[in-house]
């Protein structure tokens, strides 16, 4: 039964609520896993909640102009937008979001949109490290977009569509239908790009605390920071769901989604704990090197 528009909006909010909480818990649990590697106990899983509450109940806040406000808003819009046009659970009424209204290109646009908005806002902060962080972020994004775009192209070619629902649908019926197995090169390229996208080591050049503490969000505080933290959860969730949909056969129920996204996210942590950080130029060179070649190869394979 097709719900009304109002109903869909309601479902979308529910879905957004779930992914926000999931994203927060995911961040919390990954922090605990990282802590384990570091030989310690780590923060409570629910710590991100407290942090956001804390940030939101700050008594005063400082502004650096209207764009400064809009930065986190754009970013949040980017995060929510990304998520809204991806089906979180294939075939679910509640979690399909507005995936039928947009396609892969729209989603990719939203991914960019958040970053750009952030760039505008952070630049307004007046802090040199914000500016450097933004430029680093944009430079690196441009670089990892290449393998990512290539792998998306490969996927699009492979499935002959940009509709995410269709792509997921095509992967149903056994894990061998997953893109992971049907076009492994594309997945490798995309996963490497994903490392860059998630800002984990060795690609954490944007907030690099020892270099440019802490990059774009340097001047953000109070509720604006709370907004950024919330977005981090949503955006992470959205990206993970997207990857799951594109490369890992999507999910037919929420449990599968949780397991798959958790594992995809874990790749970040797994690599991140082992390596230090690239310099920006190294990072760019890296993305434009092997991953791009893999991406091209995947496109060729898909095309051929």
């Amino acid at each position: 039964m097709e719900p009304t528009l109002l109903g869909r909006i309601g479902y979308a909010f529910l879905s957004l609520f779930v992914i926000t909480n999931y994203g927060l818990l995911l961040i919390g649990s990954m922090a605990r896993i990282s802590a384990k590697v570091q030989g310690r106990v780590g923060q409570p899983v629910y710590q991100p909640y407290i942090d956001i509450i804390k940030s939101s109940v700050k008594r005063n806040a400082i502004s650096h102009g209207i764009m400064f406000y809009l930065g986190p808003v754009f970013r949040l819009a980017g995060g929510v937008g990304t998520y809204m046009f991806i089906p979180a659970v294939f075939g679910s009424v509640v979690f399909r979001n507005f995936s039928d209204s947009g396609d892969l290109l729209l989603v990719m646009y939203f991914i960019f949109f958040g970053q750009l908005g952030m760039a505008l806002g952070a630049g307004e902060g007046g802090h040199p490290y914000s500016a450097i962080g933004v430029s680093r972020g944009l430079a690196q994004m441009t670089a990892f977009e290449v393998p990512f775009a290539l792998s998306v192209i490969a996927v699009a070619i492979q499935y002959g569509t940009l509709d995410i629902n269709a792509i997921v649908g095509a992967q149903q019926g056994g894990f061998l239908n997953w893109t992971l197995f049907t076009n492994p090169l594309a997945v490798v390229a995309a996963i490497i790009a994903f490392l860059g996208m998630s800002m984990h080591n060795p690609f954490s050049v944007v907030i690099a605390p020892q270099e440019i503490p802490i990059g774009p969000p340097t001047e953000y505080q109070a509720n604006l920071l709370g907004m950024l933290q919330t977005n981090r959860a949503i955006f992470n969730g959205a990206k993970l769901v997207l990857y799951m949909n594109l490369f890992f056969g999507g999910a037919t129920n929420i449990l599968v989604m949780v397991v798959k996204t958790f594992l995809i996210y874990f790749i970040n942590v797994f690599v991140g704990q082992a390596f230090p950080r690239f310099r920006t130029d190294q990072s760019i060179r890296f993305f434009l090197g092997v991953p791009t070649l893999i991406g091209i190869a995947s496109v060729i394979i898909a095309a051929v």
Binding site: Q38, N201, P202, Q210, P276
Partner: peptide, 16 residues
């Protein structure tokens, strides 16, 4: 030294 290049794990161990 590890931390300066972003590798926090080493610092966690070595400071211990």
């Amino acid at each position: 030294q590890a931390g300066a290049f972003g590798h926090g794990t080493i610092a966690q161990w070595s400071v211990t």
